[in-house]
């Protein structure tokens, strides 16, 4: 079986500064794949490069057997891969409905139907479509950002730390929605700080350290892996308590 997304030997970073070195990852149809790793490992940078926000220095990206290495961010959406950045992922001065309309900007028809479908997953957004997005709480913003990315019926959804800075209850809710989205047939590739919860729900996971891929296992295997547990999952507990206040 051919992978839905295959990233081959991609290096990327910022001008004059390579952060990610020759990474290869794969996402199959309907899979949830999580990338974990310490701060500064290049997880977000890799995701941005796949999404076309950053240029790739080398390597190829294949989506649905189509070479999308050189596509710009706006063309990646057309190709079927939607991206949700970690922060600044909504249009604050636009209403909830307008945010979703922008997500469906390239849709020729059925925009209102799709908005209804997407919002049915997030009742708290559905209730007030004309609310300014800038007035939403952190969890609602994340929900809106994910909804926006679903507007063009993507085959792959890329999420950059979707539960960062959320309370445990909201985190749980977002993860549940991610499960729902996967059940509708959309593959998910995400970067997560709350690694344990994410991995438990993932089919597979990659561990990234200093811009290099060091380990690929199934989600539960990674959680059970004593090295991973000691390095990332244990340290993460302190971070969770830090985030509680948000």
């Amino acid at each position: 079986m051919t992978a839905l997304l295959s990233v081959n030997d991609v290096s990327t970073g910022y001008v004059g500064l390579e952060i990610v070195h020759k990474i290869s990852i794969q996402v199959d149809k309907g899979e949830i794949v999580t990338i974990i790793g310490p701060n500064g490992a290049g997880k977000s940078t890799l995701l941005k490069a796949i999404a076309g926000v950053l240029t790739k220095f080398e390597g190829t990206v294949i989506l649905n057997q189509q070479n999308v290495t050189k596509l710009s961010a706006s063309n990646m959406v057309i190709a079927g891969a939607s991206f949700v950045p970690q922060t600044d992922n909504i249009f604050p001065s636009l209403s909830i409905k307008e945010n979703l309309e922008m997500g469906g900007f390239l849709r020729n028809s059925g925009i209102n139907e799709r908005i209804k479908e997407v919002l049915s997953m997030f009742p708290e957004l559905e209730k007030r479509p004309n609310e300014k997005a800038g007035n939403l709480s952190g969890g609602q913003r994340q929900a809106l950002a994910i909804s926006r990315a679903l507007m063009l019926d993507p085959v792959l959804l890329m999420l950059d730390e979707p539960t960062a800075a959320l309370s445990p209850a909201l985190r749980e809710e977002i993860f549940d929605r991610i499960d729902t989205i996967r059940e509708s047939g959309v593959a998910i590739l995400m970067v997560e700080q709350n690694a344990k919860e994410a991995l438990l729900r993932s089919d597979r996971g990659y561990v990234l350290v200093a811009g290099e891929s060091v380990l690929e296992q199934t989600g539960p295997e990674l959680v059970a892996n004593p090295d991973v547990g000691r390095l990332f999952l244990g340290a993460e507990r302190n971070q969770q308590t830090d985030n509680e206040g948000n």
Partner: peptide, 15 residues
């Protein structure tokens, strides 16, 4: 308006 708010996100949304 969306581009004015955040042009990077606008292109990520496919605009």
């Amino acid at each position: 308006r969306a581009t004015s708010d955040n042009s990077e996100l606008a292109s990520i949304a496919g605009i």
